[in-house]
Amino acid sequence: MLARLIALVIVTLLASAAVAHAQGPLVVSTWGGNWKDTVERVVGKAFTAKTGVPVEFEVGGTIDRLAKARVTKGSPLVDVTLTTTHVGRLYISDGLFAPLDMGKLPNAKQIAREAIRSEHHVGTWAYVYTIVYRPDLVKDEITRWADLWKPGLKGKIALPDFDPSHIITIAALMEGGNELSWVKGQERLRQLKPNIAAFFSTDAQSQDLMKTGQAPVQVMLSVNAYHLQEQGIGVRVVQPRDFPGIVGIDTMAVMAGSKKSDLAHQFIDLALSKDIQTELVKSLRAGPTNTGATVPAPLRGQPGIFLTASEWKERGYIMNDEARAKTLPAWREWFTATIVKK
């Protein structure tokens, strides 16, 4: 009796494991939280409706997903990867992305030139890192990056501690350099220290600092700022006049060795289509890469929403992907040692 019960349990376990393997969904790697929810709801549902193939998501941070892709090189666990354009460069230099077959991506023809990042990865949406602040807690209006250094903002600013590339690049630009000659901005960034109240590691922390007023001025993702506004926190998103915000582009690519290359291309093509892009923009409050996508009226002209070639060119600073990817570790180390440490 007991032996039969145990045997039954073992058989059930094995059977359920086998079923899980046989189904074979398209697996997409992306960030967790709202990103995954949006991609799942907007792109995943439409893809399954069209092809009948279910979509599953492998979620994680930017770097740990890269590490996972490295150790599974050749027989990847996922078919499509969503990552930032610069980290995409690291995937490419490790041979983890398959070249895109543009013939299978007809919608790519409508994509802004700046968003076709390489032969391997293509941008699906854009945003900027810019200044966001609460006008009710900050007396003087903030209109330029240089305003952050004003003595009136002493102990009011919060910055992300996981990625300092934006503020480092801005400091370099102010000193006549750029991200390649970032050392030029080091001294200026040191002078910002008295104004820095806190560093945040997560969106939740940033939200908390803004909500409680502990750090009413932050350099943050435009996307997150619009989310705060929607939650009823009255923040202003600045379109800085001296230098533009730093553009971020999130991209999609097909993993090298994926057994579902055709489906993966179909998924990406769908994500680039006009209708899906319109939906994505609406829920993420990011800028579309498809120039034909419709943007809700209140978002038009806002920071991070680029609609025309000239807006792409003038209203955001696009960093060199390769330099950003390769120098980020050095930036983080310097930033942690010099700016974050007391």
Binding site: A20, W31, G32, G33, N34, F57, E58, A204, Q207
Partner: peptide, 19 residues
């Protein structure tokens, strides 16, 4: 992994990603 994770692990993942 994503396929076989049990509830406490799924809850942990959720706490890390959502507020």
């Amino acid at each position: 992994t994503r396929v076989n994770e049990i509830l406490p692990v799924a809850m942990f993942t959720y706490v890390v990603n959502y507020t």
